[in-house]
Design a protein around this nucleic acid. Sequence first.
DNA 1: AGCACGCCGACT
DNA 2: GTCGGCGTGCTC
Length: 715
Amino acid sequence: MSSENGQAAGGAKGAPPEQLALIRESVRKAEVPRAKPRTWRGAALAKELPVARVLVDKGALHLDRYFDYAVPEELDADAQPGVRVRVRFGAGRHRVREGRREGGGLIDGFLVERLAESDYSGPLAALAQVVSPEPVLSEELLGLARAVADRYAGSLADVLQLAVPPRSARAEQRSSPAALPPPPAPEPGSWSRYEQGPAFLESLARGGAPRAVWNALPGPGWSEELARAVTATLASGRGALVVLPDGRAVARIDAALTALLGRGRHAVLTADAGPEKRYAQWLAVRRGSVRAVIGTRAAMFAPVRDLGLVAVWDDGDDSHSEQHAPQPHAREVLLLRAAQDRCGFLLGGWSCTVEAAQLVETGWARPLVAGRERVRGAAPLVRTVGDGDFARDEAARAARLPTLAWQVVREGLRHGPVLVQVPRRGYVPRMACARCREPARCRHCAGPLEARGFDDLRCGWCGREESGWHCPECGGFRLRAQVVGARRTAEELGRAFPAVAVRTSGREHVLDTVPAAPALVVSTPGAEPVAEGGYAAALLLDGWAMLGRPDLRAGEDALRRWIGAAALVRPQSAGGTVVVVAEPTLRPVQALVRWDPVGHAVRELAERAELGFPPVSRMAAVSGPGRAVAEFLRAVELPGEAEVLGPVPLPVTAAGQQRRPGGPPPGEHWERSLIRVPPGRGAALAGALKAAQAARTARGAGEAVRVRIDPPDIG
DNA sequence: AGCACGCCGACT
DNA sequence: GTCGGCGTGCTC
């Protein structure tokens, strides 16, 4: 391949259609049908594979296309696939000054591939710079990023921003340590509590790729069990990746892995390390000196070599959803990874999401559960208190506590710390049957009914008005707004037990652990400290607030949070007791009493299938100013089976109110439409939405709309 | 998004 | 003729 002046303009004279044209001197199209190629300022090009295919890092605009650039000879060695490059990327014709071509500004990109020829018919500009020879974007990572972008109707560049941390030259210069040899396969340890536990570990250690949904027994055993799964995978000579919902969970696995393997075999990727340290850790993983990674959601893209296992803990926790576009969920990303890399997959938690149940239901993953006897042996006694039981005795009434709750707290405090779970503020009430409390749903699309004002009842999804509502369960015809709980209870509780220390754990101050001494520990869901030796008792308050949220997941979420607290309580055999203040006939409450989160998820799944809800159907939300949403819906070419619900107005963000991610800016009136498709059509839906979005931004038409796959709050 | 090209009307 | 309005379309 000649690089020197080399290329005859293609076409007319029958010369080979040489692609590698470089500078177009001010050549007019009329004279030469194709740009007349010349070398770039006399500089030579790479002799082999002189074309670099580049992913230009320019947000949503480039729309996932690659652009070809010429590789100057002096960049030949460094310009390998996966490196960061800088290129000129600008509009229209290019100025030619002093023989050098000037496009738009210099922008960053990734070199994706080296090619012999380009299929671009115009002249190619040259790579301006190879930022560093470190190949940060492997073929696997690129493939994963593309799959995630497709799944979420997002751009490749957006996903890569999540997947590849910003460069730090200093971190790159430091050399990563040599990899340690694989450790010996671990003993099964407490995995033998689960029927298929030892077999699962053995399969990993042998180099197999088992896929399991693991319902962990309550108590502290889970972290060591996860660490053993990682160790078994390392023993097979492969790498492992574990994604956890928060820093506290990461710290627990970190400790368990260190105990099992010592230091140096695993990396911790969390947001709170500085950018340089984070990049250094990431590089150590990419370079293969560390084979195991644990971390919070950003770690889901960690470039672990030769993956043998991906694992997620507590996938129902909403911090597994990435905040940045296109907002992928760690579970879904790891599912894509498991499929792409054909590696093992472990989805674990004390509770069970509907998505997890679906993985078992479809046969993609096997259940990894303990027998009922084991479960009963590990779980605390759970008792319920409904509204009817509210206090007769004076002291309990002062604390707004049912008598039973009062007694259990008092008894618990004689043996150790007692956990009191109070809900976070800010839940929106929704309408339910005043008699049986069945949530009120739209008769057309089964969305949640919301009161928009006096006597104005509408569906939160399709916006249709409901005038003659009656309860399909009990025939009742009166509605009530469900109660939102008060955290005042905690203070009152403290006053009711004046001799006992009250400690609180919540958003601002999250306690990691509390000692075994008697104390009242008041916590919001997810912030519960671990008690040394386990809590003697737990009181789960305001079940109505948790169940009354206008969300499809209200029941599942309430159960997950209750179980998250109750799993920190001693087993029933050691006196552990939990009291939940909620209507005993409700499904999540019964599931808690029986300690059967899997059964609950399976029933929810069946119901979602029947009603056409996710995850059985796939949903997308389109939101923005009303006119823009309408325009978008007119333009988008949806797959035939798609069903459009709405649009309905979104609540206006008040001036002082914090803007919800994806919500309207303060004061603006936005609308939202939901689109759902039957199972198996998710990719088609995402593709259609992406194409419509691309067409809109290319035309620069009107105001932007937001497209969100798997919207989290669908009523 | 920028930004240049180009087609059409008003000007020295 | 030539200057410059902004509508259109491209970016290797």
